[in-house]
């Protein structure tokens, strides 16, 4: 069984992001991690391969610095990796999927492709769908339970209202992992050492015939989230507070 896991190199959600210019951020001091949703996909791939044999290939589109993130994925059990190297921090979703498709096809089509349900940095939520369309294979997103049986995958997915759908999909297909699918393991120290020796195939984006500047969408400007203004505490009895609140909503905020 061959499984590809698409992994994005994203800033830690706890990291302090400093903007650099209009369209970028300071990434030299910022801590990066494996996109947390991708990590569920990675854990699932590794445990599937531990059970059934085969290999787990990490596919990443990103800057060269993403190799550190790839090594973390390898310490968790991925066997090898392909890094499609970009120069910029942000790549249009359409181009990202074109790059993933090219890299995956070049390597040989896998039985399953895992992605996260979305990335925690740009939150585009497009990769799995675009990639499935490009490869002409089915996709199920937000999967929180999975059973693989030969060339069939049976999955449970969250539908958003607390309900769960049970979906059957013929493989090869794409699975968008989400919280609940598993509990990602901590890498063991010897595996961290072994990860260093696992191969990473670095392919410049241009080698795949893709022009980094040819994206259909362009990031115009990044802005820091404005700091929250101070909350106003109302005082007095409940009746007085309600009266004050109505007054504020009417006269100051002008929402009523």
């Amino acid at each position: 069984m061959k499984i590809c896991v698409c992994i994005k190199h994203v800033p830690d959600t706890a990291a302090n992001i400093k903007l650099a210019g209009e369209q970028g951020f300071e990434d030299s001091e910022c801590k990066f991690v494996v996109n947390p949703y991708d990590e569920y996909g990675l854990e699932e791939s590794v445990s599937l391969v531990e059970k059934n044999g085969g290999e787990v290939v990490v596919v990443t589109v990103g800057k060269e610095a993403a190799t550190a993130t790839i090594r973390s994925a390898m310490a968790m059990g991925a066997h090898r990796a392909i890094l499609v190297k970009t120069e910029g921090q942000f790549l249009d979703s359409a181009l990202t999927c074109k790059a993933l498709k090219a890299a995956i096809e070049k390597d040989g089509t896998p039985d399953i492709i895992f992605t996260g349900k979305g990335s925690v940095d740009t939150e585009g939520f497009q990769t799995q769908y675009r990639l499935a369309a490009a490869l002409g294979i089915p996709v199920v997103n937000e999967v929180s339970k999975l059973t693989v049986d030969g060339s069939k995958a049976v999955m449970e997915r969250e539908t958003g209202s607390g309900e769960r759908e049970v979906v059957e999909m013929t493989l090869p297909g794409i699975i968008g992992a989400t919280k609940g699918l598993n509990e990602p393991r901590y890498p063991k120290f010897p595996d961290i050492m072994k990860a260093k020796k696992k191969p990473i195939d670095v392919i410049p984006l241009s080698d795949l015939g893709i022009d980094e500047g040819a994206g259909k969408s362009v990031l115009v400007k990044l802005e820091a989230t404005p700091e929250r203004s101070g909350a106003k505490m109302l005082e007095g009895s409940v009746t007085e507070q309600v009266a004050q609140l109505v007054k504020i909503l009417k006269e100051e905020e002008k929402v009523i």
Binding site: S72, A75, Y186, P187, I192, M193, K196
Partner: peptide, 12 residues
């Protein structure tokens, strides 16, 4: 890189 990774993983 391994020492950095050990720090990161142990912290996590």
């Amino acid at each position: 890189k391994e020492q950095e990774m050990i720090r990161r993983e142990v912290r996590k």
